[in-house]
Design a binder for these strands. Sequence first.
DNA 1: CCTACCGATCGGTAGG
DNA 2: CCTACCGATCGGTAGG
Lengths: 188, 188
Amino acid sequence: MNSRRHQIEEKASVLFMERGYAATSMRDLATALNIEAASLYSHIKAKEEILQDICFRLAEEFFISINEVLQQEETPLVKLKMAITGHVKVVLKDISSSAVFINEWKHLSETNLKKFLQLRMEYEKKFILLIKEGVKGGAIKNIDEKFLAQYILSSINGSNSWYNPLGKMTSEEFGNQLADLLIQGIRK
Amino acid sequence: MNSRRHQIEEKASVLFMERGYAATSMRDLATALNIEAASLYSHIKAKEEILQDICFRLAEEFFISINEVLQQEETPLVKLKMAITGHVKVVLKDISSSAVFINEWKHLSETNLKKFLQLRMEYEKKFILLIKEGVKGGAIKNIDEKFLAQYILSSINGSNSWYNPLGKMTSEEFGNQLADLLIQGIRK
DNA sequence: CCTACCGATCGGTAGG
DNA sequence: CCTACCGATCGGTAGG
């Protein structure tokens, strides 16, 4: 709907990814959009509002993905693979926004920061539960589930910085490849 | 030798990790050291000099580690595991400095940035070569070596953000565990 | 969406 | 290592 606002967030994601949130000024953003800095404030209330919107939008997308996986009737290992490919899909669908989600959340101010970390913890817990199932059933190595969850999630998130959309792999192939490597590493 | 300078860099690493380079002011740093901002400049020439020193010091440590591994007479898979545990060791030995190396290098200015990216590429190439050996010898899956190298390195680097020095694992145990997961994922 | 601004803060220097 | 500053830039507002 609000297309100008959408343009602002899109451009901001790119700049925040490239230079970081703190090093991107409202004048930088305005220049990239061919307007004056003051004009931005008829579309947003504050700089942080942009960061907030990006971070919580991505959080929502990650939740949609994992919740869809959790209601499937599959083995833990299959579900875990789906959770991984689903996470990768969200990351690669919008690389700049996910880069901001992954690297710039720390610039959220108090209340937002708390909410954000709460959501991230909830999301990680869902991964941990999935892994616990797998360990119990004997499909996954008997390693601390939190360790494995952090390992998997940080490995996927890292791919944000090196996946090349212009390379030979589509994002689906990439996600599958990555998931296979991770799954083979942790399975018994 | 120059212990005051060393203290400045140490404290700066922590602040740069916590808030990011751009969001850390020289006044923040000075306050953390109980001195005035202007006093910092009798020890350093500019803010970027601190960032530069941290980034290139870490780069050096990574090179020392990989070069030691490369001159070993071992199978590619064993050498790769050594390269991984060596890299983890450097990362975990100084979590704040390595966090700056991993996340804040983009704030280096032109000349330093170019040099830094050059070094990082050289380092990655050594990993790629190691993996190529393994693929040729049939020990490692026939997957694009660059993909595998990026996957491994970004997975290790990610651990910087979630390894808990106060947890049950020593950094050696942690590095071994991580290396095993990665190796088992990529081996044939 | 723009012009014209504001107070605050930035990295850094002069001089002791 | 400090006091006293400087020009530049920051996020943001008023008023149209």
